[in-house]
Computed example of a mutant assay.
Amino acid sequence: MDEFIIDREYQLKLNSKTKLWDNYQHGELLSKSTDKLFKYFPLNLYSIDGLLRSYFHLANPGQFNDPFDCNINLAKDIIELDSMKTVKRNNFNNIGVCSFSETIDNHLMWAHYTNNYNGFALEFCGKKIDIKLNRSEIIRHTLTRVIYPEIPVKINKDFPFAYHYILTTKFKHWSYEKEWRIIAELNCDDREMEYYPESIKAIYIGHKIPDENESAYKMLLEIQELKFPKTPIFVVYPHPTDLNLKFEKVWE
């Protein structure tokens, strides 16, 4: 087998050179990189700690807000799936996922993932996020896009792409997220993945922070000055006259 039809929109095809399975949409090969990626955060102790110490949290899919995300029922005969012995209700003890989006100007992303503009987002170069790999806890990792078939099909557990398919397939109504994921295989319970501070290309702050929480706003500006002095910072508002978002630069 060198091709698998997911639905009328998506297909998987075996690359004869790399021996990897590539995603196709409407017959066109999907790019394996994008120019920019954005990571959204609500404002809380965990997100501030991650910003100060420059790390991503690699979530267990069992903690996701969507129970159909990374759903083990995408594979047939899951009881016998040897590589998923630790799975219980989408719980992958040895897998960590960090999600990003291609878009920074989507209203729903700011509403859902920054607690309605009471959070912030970080911009990274989508072609390469510089991760510190000097830790034995992370066995290997990959950055890959998520696909959104109309009706995801169940696949045979023995297919060579079965594991990847389960971890990167979501229902069509989530397609507005334009999601990419770091998927890491872990060797312990530590779920922190460090990145180099220079990887951050811009910081975006939801308008409710300066509007309603001045001390938190000052704290974020101080963190930027201390950790990311060359990184531009923006406040994000609903535009006062148009139906889009406004990005106001704080300083040069």
Score class of each variant (00 low, 15 high):
H141Q: 09
W174R: 02
Y55M: 09
H141M: 13
R140A: 12
P61K: 05
K172D: 10
F38T: 04
N90S: 14
A121H: 02
G62A: 14
K201C: 12
S99R: 06
K13T: 01
P197M: 09
S47Y: 10
I78C: 05
W110I: 13
G50L: 02
L37C: 04
K227P: 02
K13P: 01
E194G: 02
Q11S: 14
K201N: 11
T34I: 15
F38C: 05
K172N: 11
D22M: 08
L220N: 08
D69I: 08
F120H: 14
R191H: 10
I205W: 11
T114R: 08
N91V: 04
D69A: 08
K132S: 12
F68Y: 12
A162C: 11
V146L: 05
Y195I: 07
A162K: 00
L133P: 00
K127Q: 13
Q25S: 13
I6G: 09
P240K: 03
D66S: 03
S16E: 04
N134Y: 09
D49V: 01
Y204A: 07
S83G: 02
E123D: 06
Y24M: 04
R135S: 13
T241D: 11
T86V: 01
V235H: 04
I131C: 07
D69M: 08
N71E: 03
N116M: 10
C70F: 09
H173V: 11
K127R: 10
H173Y: 14
K172P: 00
E179Y: 09
